[in-house]
């Protein structure tokens, strides 16, 4: 969790048990470079920014900073920013408490998704597909050979994204 990874074929990437976190899956079909970031939170609180700036783990931990960081890591493996497309998985509300929901309150999952979408748009990356929200946890497998993304959950059938 709160990590990012990049890979080229024949390696594959995977992320298990995603709840309210968002997983950002970026792919450059030309260079066959895939990148995955597993972010827990939408954005860093000002009080938590370390004096020396955010390190790699911190950048992946937050959905807004994860996009730029992941793109830069992929570029080191030969990816080209202009070809990269994005898929987004996660942002579920795992627990719901009985009773009326607070008016206008967004769940952490929804806030994570919003931060990720906004950051993708700010970096000019196209959001190709999304498997998000709901109340079920997810796991994903991401194959750099063709950019295919398999989404699994505990109770539903696996789905290709």
């Amino acid at each position: 969790m709160a990590e990012s990874m990049c890979a080229k074929p024949p390696d594959k990437l995977a992320c298990f048990g995603i709840g309210s976190c968002v997983c950002l899956a970026l792919y450059d079909p030309g260079a066959k470079v895939a990148g995955l970031a597993h972010s827990m939170l939408p954005t860093i609180a000002a009080a938590l920014v370390p004096p020396g700036g955010m390190g790699p783990a911190d950048q992946a931990k937050y959905a807004d900073s994860a996009v730029g960081f992941l793109v830069a890591s992929m570029e080191k493996l030969g990816a080209s920013r202009g070809r990269i497309t994005a898929k987004l998985v996660g942002g579920a509300a795992m627990f719901s408490f009985a009773g009326p929901r607070t008016e206008g309150a967004e769940s952490l999952g929804e806030r994570n998704l919003r931060a990720a979408r906004e950051s993708l748009a700010a970096h000019g990356l196209a959001l190709q597909a999304e498997e998000s929200g709901g109340s079920a946890g997810r796991s994903i497998e991401f194959d750099p050979a063709d950019g295919s993304l398999l989404v699994r959950s505990a109770l539903a059938d696996p789905r290709w994204l």
Binding site: M1, F16, G17, I18, G19, S20, C21, M40, L41, A92, M94, F95, S96, F97, A98, L108, G109, S135, A136, G137, R138, S139, S153, A154, L155
Partner: peptide, 16 residues
């Protein structure tokens, strides 16, 4: 609140 799901998806949500 109740959920039947992968342990990591539950714990990570609580910790997040």
């Amino acid at each position: 609140a109740f959920a039947l799901d992968m342990v990591s998806s539950l714990l990570s949500t609580v910790l997040a």
